[in-house]
Amino acid sequence: MPASRSASPAADLATTVVLAAFIAVLGIFPGIYVGGSGVPIVLQNMGPLIAGAMIGARRGVASVVLLLVLVAIGLPLLSGGRGGLAPFAGPSSGFLFGWILSALVTGLIAQRALGSARPGSRFLILLLAAFAGLVADYVLGIGWLTVYLGDFRAALVGSLVFVPGDLVKVVVTALVATVVHRALPGRFAASPARTR
């Protein structure tokens, strides 16, 4: 179905809402069993990175904020069916608020650099964008945890467990975003008229 026009308010709204739902479904859906580990990996914290990498900073941030608001008002949309206000009050809530920063950082890098990039270097740009988004999340997450624990080193050590898994997710995000950008080009609002 061909249609082309500049991004309309309705298209913006739809994209924001659907990506917020996308992040939620990544959490609702049981994790995928990778290798023979027997432990499902939770995909949800890839969501903000994918949102930033696919739809840019502005709408990516909007979709993460929307999701967090829905969680806060009592919908169990975080992985494991968590929801309500409690996730925002706990010691790891910095990582949750960090999702906003993730979408912002990943989105900014992706939309700035991707347009002019040669197709061959797109994966590297998206890898950098997703990695920077992850770092942004850790900065906020570890910062908040430090406040809670009263000790930076303890917060840092406590968070290291998640680093290997999260690095894998950064790579997966970059892979997925590269392929999907090629399949559906021109997803950023900046593109004047998109064809699909």
Partner: peptide
């Protein structure tokens, strides 16, 4: 993730219309 994301974005386009 790839087909899920592709269909998600297509749904977003249709919902926008």
């Amino acid at each position: 993730a790839v087909p899920f994301l592709v269909r998600t974005l297509k749904h977003a386009d249709e919902l926008g219309d």
